[in-house]
């Protein structure tokens, strides 16, 4: 590299220059760091149980460790920006557990990821939710006085031995307007709660419209009717 030509063996004053440059770089870094702030949001909320007739299914649910501790990290791009950490893991588990318990006749939390050798409670199928993507906007980004959170989920419905039944994706969106004396963090937290509620609403209204799920439900129902035993 060309820069090696200004190394110690070529110039005696170089170490001093390197020191000065390092000091300046450090100072600049310190200034840059001092200009940025980290905003941490832990999404927590009360999620109501769904008002519906439960589907006649014994469903298992497996939360991957990444799902249970899901967090979104967005590093500041400039001095005027803030670094954002949005933690949704705990709220995700809270919301999905409540939702699934109200949506299905019986819900069991799996001991391990469904696989041929894995011992798990006996259920009709196992749902594995995953957060594929999280995006957020604040008024500083868009000039619109709304805080938004957008989530994309990926779901896998598998048998207890891990064979796939259905795979699909789903989006959820939450927004909250700016309010007097409301911090950015509080507004993003509220938008997160709205997004999670929307995820629940979207899941309930779309679950049976996934073709593979609808087909599996039909087969499940057929297998339970007395004629199927004949």
């Amino acid at each position: 590299m060309d820069s090696t030509t200004s190394g110690p063996e070529h110039n005696n004053r170089a170490p001093r220059r390197v020191h000065e440059a390092a000091r300046t770089a450090l100072l600049l870094c310190a200034l840059l760091v001092a200009g940025c702030t980290t905003k941490e949001v832990i999404v927590v909320g009360n999620f109501p149980a769904p008002l519906m007739e439960p589907l006649p299914v014994a469903l298992g649910v497996w939360y991957e460790p990444e799902f249970e501790t899901h967090e979104f990290f967005d590093e500041a791009k400039g001095r005027a920006d803030s670094t954002w950490i949005v933690k949704t893991g705990e709220a995700q588990v809270d919301m999905w557990s409540g939702l699934l318990n109200g949506m299905f006749l019986r819900v069991e939390r799996m001991d391990g990821k469904p696989a041929p050798e894995q011992m798990n409670p006996a259920v009709d199928a196992v749902l594995i939710p995953r957060v594929d993507e999280l995006q957020y906007t604040i008024p500083a980004h868009t000039n619109v006085k709304v805080y938004e959170i957008w989530l994309r989920y990926a779901f896998e419905l598998v048998t207890t031995s891990g064979e796939p039944i259905a795979e699909w994706t789903m989006t959820a969106y939450g927004k909250t307007p700016t309010a007097f004396l409301q911090s950015d963090e509080e507004a993003v937290r509220l938008a997160g709660v709205v997004a999670l509620r929307d995820a629940g609403a979207h899941f309930i209204t779309s679950f049976l419209t996934v073709p593979e799920v609808a087909q599996w439900m039909e087969e499940l129902e057929r297998s339970r009717t007395p004629t199927a035993a004949l």
Binding site: L51, R197, D198, H202
Partner: peptide, 12 residues
């Protein structure tokens, strides 16, 4: 809205 969840959410 909470007692009717999820039927009175913005989406539904």
């Amino acid at each position: 809205i909470n007692s009717m969840y999820p039927w009175f959410e913005p989406r539904t």
